[in-house]
Design a protein around this nucleic acid. Structure first.
Lengths: 133, 133
DNA sequence: CTCCTTGTGATAATTGTTTTCAACAGTAAG
DNA sequence: CTTACTGTTGAAAACAATTATCACAAGGAG
């Protein structure tokens, strides 16, 4: 099954790449809507699913409610701010999180995901301010 | 603020401990209902939230699916089966996943979560079988 | 006992996502 | 150029998980 690049599909991909971030489906929907006012949210969801199926983008399943999508395919982990839910990339060398396979209960390991939580610099400042008052 | 142990609360906690697993709210609901047929799912959600707020249980946010709850408070990670969504504990020594704080974009790190995905032994067998056919 | 707080069950509302479906291209064959 | 086929779209409904609302019952404090 080969992938046809429809206008919508292309636009979604382009906007995701442009943002360089980790957008949710509806954030992306809002952006694409500026160029294609009649596009539907379902189309965004559909195409994000398709694009991640063919590995053109990456679907992040990060704690919190919404799924996020990333145009960066390289293997990397994420840090996310528990205050403002901002997400950023983390470059952690793979061998730093080498897994003890013998403890894996007989599982065939297909992947690992490391998620670091913290408070981003901006929110640290905000918190510092509110404490002063 | 002190926690009152209502019958429902106690039952939910008891069933979660009894299971030793990582139950979703509605799995727990089904179990508790056997003893308290009139309990409502909302009560289960409510109390799981409360119990994890006071650190009597742990809320797991895995893979964007349903939240799961764990009566095991010790710090540990999880491996979960991409086929059947079974979840098991992983004992990974902390220093094996030591983080390079200097890469953390200025974040104050509050936690980390490692999730390993794989195929459990049971599902490996299942897959082997279907391939034979 | 009355007042006040809290917890409860039932149900509605909300949120995020997926499915359905009729209309509509794009392509390939006849 | 028709016909048939395939995949895509937008709109709306369906769905699943969770949370909020609300009337009411239970259990103190005074």
């Amino acid at each position: 099954m080969q992938l046809r690049m429809t206008n919508q599909r292309e636009m979604i991909l382009r906007e995701l790449k442009k943002s360089k971030g980790h957008l949710t489906a509806d954030e992306l929907y809002e952006r694409v809507k500026k160029f294609m006012p009649r596009i539907s949210l379902a189309t965004v969801y559909r195409n994000l699913e398709i694009l991640s199926d063919v590995n053109m983008i990456r679907k992040l399943e990060i704690s919190g409610r919404q799924k996020r999508f990333d145009s960066e395919l390289e293997d990397h982990d994420h840090i996310y701010c528990v205050e403002c839910h901002r997400i950023e990339n983390l470059e952690i060398s793979k061998n730093q999180v080498e897994l003890p396979v013998e403890d894996a209960h007989g599982y065939t390991i297909t992947g690992r995901r490391l998620e670091v939580t913290g408070v981003c610099p901006r929110c640290q400042k905000k918190i510092a301010k509110t404490k002063k008052q």
